[in-house]
């Protein structure tokens, strides 16, 4: 098998001195969609934020390689420019920072990192408008502050819009489905599927399998007490839907 795009080995992470991830290992190859499921407090969001480089998470052991590079040695902005995208569970509002400006600045940061020239303003607008149509986002939101006054659904769709504009190699989507009604879920699912390609990978962090009806994963992992306790295909997600997590928690190693 070819080298994994993302390779996590024995990752241990503390948050405020408390161990949260206890030796997690995972390999994600280009072209794959992985779903990481698990109960509250299992470490799903911690994993997503550690990979994106959020301050406040202490890696005590293990390694993460992204496209062959040491991800943990990179600053958050370097990870983003290398092609990693974190879709936030709770996208922040930034009044005064124009949505379009952020999109363009982020895109140009990636392009510069790849040695490309900055995008032409008209090409940028054409491209963003096309992606906004995919995500069914009102064009008026482009000139508003980032997520300013957006509904919960609009914020999540805006995250996926950013992902589509930036075309990351690896998208980590942290509970992108939370708070979405069924119609919005379909739109978000369609947006995520648009990104699927043999060159890219997607990791969906979610509680529920309903998003997986829209974005069918290649692999499903259950994270419990800071470990991956079970991996399987989509059938595992359906089984979790029927049986919940308790039967797997019994199998999870106790936390020291």
């Amino acid at each position: 098998m070819n080298t994994a795009l993302l390779e996590i080995e024995n990752l241990r992470v503390n948050v405020a001195g408390t161990p949260v991830l206890h030796g997690l290992s995972l390999a994600v190859h280009a072209g794959e969609v992985h779903a990481i499921m698990g109960p509250n407090g299992s470490g799903k969001s911690t994993l997503a934020h550690v990979l994106a480089g959020r301050p406040g998470y202490e890696v005590t052991a293990g390694s993460v390689r992204f496209d062959g590079a040491d991800l943990l040695a990179m600053a958050p902005e370097e990870r983003a420019r290398a092609g990693l995208f974190l879709g936030f569970q709770y996208p922040v509002e930034i009044p005064g920072v124009n949505n379009a400006y952020l999109l363009k600045a982020a895109l140009n940061a990636r392009r510069r990192a790849r040695g490309e020239s900055e995008i032409d303003a008209f090409d940028f607008l054409d491209m963003v408008r096309a992606q906004m149509r995919v995500m069914q986002i009102d064009e008026a939101l482009l000139t508003r502050g980032v997520n300013e006054g957006f509904s919960g659904g609009e914020k999540k769709r805006n995250e996926i819009l950013q992902m589509l504009v930036l075309q990351p190699r690896l998208a980590l989507l942290d509970e992108t489905d939370s708070g979405l009604d069924i119609d919005a879920l379909k739109v978000v699912g369609r947006g995520i599927n648009t990104l699927r390609s043999p060159e890219r990978a997607i990791v969906l962090v979610t509680h529920y399998q309903r998003l997986l009806d829209q974005v069918v994963p290649d692999q499903v992992h259950v994270l419990a007490r800071g470990h991956i306790v079970r991996s399987g295909d989509r059938a595992l997600a359906l089984e979790l839907e029927r049986r919940g997590y308790d039967w797997l928690l019994d199998a999870a190693p106790a936390v020291a």
């Binding site: 902005e77 922040v92 930034i94 952020l102 980032v146 930036l166």
Partner: peptide, 14 residues
């Protein structure tokens, strides 16, 4: 810091 991280996570220079 949350706002700052959001922008960094989009690739902007600090």
């Amino acid at each position: 810091e949350n706002l700052l991280f959001y922008l960094l996570a989009r690739g902007l220079e600090p």
